[in-house]
């Protein structure tokens, strides 16, 4: 995570410098131009191929993935526990980039679809104390754990804007995407083991709590190489 943050900050500095350098707003047709870009952002890392299909329109296809794991970021009040959080978002996507203003060719509107073949968040809560049952001290296996998982797998539309030219004027540029996905309706599940087995009954409550968690905003920095 630390490395990811450092990379993001360095990238932002580079982006600002690049955007300053790209003060040429003149429009150049996108037709038949090609490039590949590597990206890093809130949806992890990925790669895309871009192709100009009209003078003002380019299409791109690519993939992104983000596996996150973290410990002890979540506490249940009054219940001493450790927690392991994991999030896996893997998608393939197809976007269209449209340049609406020829005198501001550095600004694009972006829309498209993404298929999240993996879009899962998982939280495991494990009691951390020696759990005493009367005068008995129970083992970890006897106590068990609770897994709360949410799955957004499926097709998700995307809408956003992008800054900096679609294709580098020379060999390379850096551009930025800001937008949001509207994910599939999440499916929640709670599974307990051992003495916590009964927590499976909380699935419907979790499902109700997270039903509106469908907007996934993204900020993405693209390192674009002209082909």
């Amino acid at each position: 995570m630390k490395l990811f943050r450092c990379t993001l900050i360095l990238s932002l500095i580079l982006v600002i410098q690049q955007l300053k350098a790209q003060n040429d707003s003149s429009f150049v047709s996108l037709l038949n131009k090609k490039s590949v870009q590597l990206n890093v952002g809130t949806q992890g890392i990925g790669a895309e191929f871009i192709y100009g299909v009209l003078p003002e329109l380019a299409v791109r296809g690519g993939l992104n993935f983000i596996p996150i794991k973290a410990n002890d970021v979540f506490k249940i009040s009054g219940f001493n526990s450790t927690s392991n959080v994991a999030a896996d978002f893997y998608n393939i996507h197809a976007f269209a980039d449209y340049v609406p203003f020829k005198n501001a060719a550095w600004f694009r509107m972006v829309g498209g679809f993404s298929y999240f073949f993996k879009a899962k968040g998982n939280l495991r809560v494990i009691p951390s104390d020696d759990y005493k049952y009367g005068d008995l001290v129970l083992t970890e296996d006897q106590i068990g754990y609770v897994d709360l998982s949410v799955d957004w797998r499926g097709l998700a539309p995307y809408l956003g804007v992008a800054f900096a030219h679609t294709f580098p004027r020379k060999k390379f540029n850096i551009n930025v995407d800001v937008g949001t996905y509207y994910l599939s309706k999440p499916k929640a599940k709670v599974v307990g083991t051992g003495l916590l087995e009964g927590n499976s009954s909380q699935t419907s409550q979790l499902q109700n709590n997270i039903k509106d968690y469908r907007w996934l905003p993204t900020v993405q920095i693209n390192f674009n190489f002209k082909l």
């Binding site: 003495l195 916590l196 709590n209």
Partner: peptide, 18 residues
């Protein structure tokens, strides 16, 4: 989304069949 806390109203269910 201005949504609820994911753990809102979620209870800890404990069995007694030790």
């Amino acid at each position: 989304s201005a949504c609820k806390k994911p753990t809102e109203n979620i209870k800890i269910v404990i069995d007694t069949d030790v």
